[in-house]
Design a binder for these strands. Structure first.
Lengths: 244, 244
DNA sequence: TCAAAGCAAGTGTGATCACAAATCAATAAT
DNA sequence: ATTATTGATTTGTGATCACACTTGCTTTGA
């Protein structure tokens, strides 16, 4: 009887430590790679090796190969005929393709969210906006990582309110695919006298606060289009120079 | 020297057998499971075991677990907290969610395709339509599998013409997710005096042939909405009966 | 000097094993 | 008769090994 009590107690403790289903190593590796991809820590065309990543993440090859396989099916990575895997290179077509898909799907998501966001959710994204302002206030060091993270939080806090369990994973896949490109654009922004992202986000917030789905969609499109069009012109310039 | 010649010959033979990158077992298992899922061979809420599938497909557990992982990230399968995996159950919300996403994305894809399909592509889908008619002509046996396959070929031949490498994988993911539901609907159709699917497809073809994107989109929406609304009413009836 | 053959290191893939957690069955206790 | 406990089977996960293929470099031959 006492043994049972102890076990029961252990169960309770375990439940607190891991509320639902202990996190597996594979999942840890997977989200680690996801973060790296969305954050643009890998550059386009970079090839990844299973054993290399396994060493870097201090595990065996097993969880890594499974995580890579999952990322490949999401098109976040690309399987070459050599059976090696790399992060997809940037091309003009792919850039336009990605932007069009993001406008379509994220636009729909925010339109849905506009009708469903309560004061609670509005407050949350305003908080994120506030953190952004703080960061900009002490701009002595350009914390690109934090910038990316806050931007991601802002957008996904909105998308979470759209109430669609189907659209959200698709948006995540799109971010995974455009992550490496975006990072390049952000660096380019820094050099080319960047426009304040916060003002775009503010327009989105006011649109959402007034439940104006149409305006929210347009503001969002303007926001996510910026780095794409920027990168696009840059790529075209490079292409033109190559041709001479 | 002769050894080299023999090797060269072997290479030539191998090249004919596998033009580019030998197909791996994992890929075979993956596409096998995909076909089964889209075809609705698994029923909603059914749980799948790695060793069970490995036995059924006559391989080790290795390729199966990798394929399952990939299908889980596509939301074609669901990972339970028990760490077991099942095909997602049907709910009213999920049904509406899936249909909305399919209308959004497949609608966009066909609108894009309308401007890009040449006589060659039109001829291809008309051929598929012809095969459908043949099948219906000798309707002595209801070949649901063939019906599903032809329907899939028809739609994806169109989507392939949209020219978007981003949208197509998303559509595949959506078909993967709605596959199990659709099969249920098709069976229900068979019992409830089915409407001819071919007439919906014919409207789509004429719209595409005249490059009428708007009409093509509307016809497509009508086509893919049918099984969903049918299943929806059926589910509601069941829910109402459960409540009494 | 240069090209081709050969070798060696590295890589992905599949199979197998070890282990922990979960599931189920049967037994025991109330 | 019903519930709780124990034990056995099954299952997912991670590690390791074996093998085939690729890649890059060295060495050999012209």
């Amino acid at each position: 009887m006492q043994k049972a009590a102890i076990e029961k107690n252990n169960e309770a403790i375990a439940a607190q430590l891991a509320p639902v289903g202990r996190e597996t190593v594979q999942d840890r590796v997977y989200s680690e790679l996801r973060r790296a991809l969305i954050g643009g820590l890998f550059e386009p065309s970079q090839v990844l090796t299973i054993r290399g990543l396994a060493d870097a993440l201090v595990t065996s090859t097993m969880p890594v190969r499974e995580a890579l396989g999952r990322l490949i099916t999401e098109k976040a990575l690309e399987a070459l005929p050599n059976r090696s895997v790399r992060v997809p290179p940037i091309t003009l077509e792919r850039l336009d393709d990605l932007l069009r898909a993001r406008i379509l799907i994220e636009g729909e998501a925010i339109a849905l969210a506009a009708a469903r966001m309560g004061p609670r959710q509005i407050a949350t994204i305003e908080t994120i906006l506030g953190e952004w302002d703080e960061m900009r206030a002490l701009k002595h060091k350009k914390d690109v990582d934090r910038e990316v993270t806050l931007n991601q939080s802002f957008h996904f806090e909105i998308y979470r309110s759209c109430g669609s369990a189907v659209l959200i994973p698709m948006i995540e896949s799109l971010w995974l695919q455009s992550g490496p490109c975006i990072r390049v654009a952000i660096y380019a922004f820094s050099e080319a006298g960047e426009v304040d992202t916060a003002q775009y986000h503010r327009r989105i917030v006011t649109a959402l606060a007034t439940q104006d789905a149409q305006s929210a969609r347009e503001s969002l499109v303007a926001d996510i289009s910026r780095p794409f069009t920027f990168l696009r012109s840059k790529l075209q310039a490079v292409a033109a120079k190559d041709q001479t």
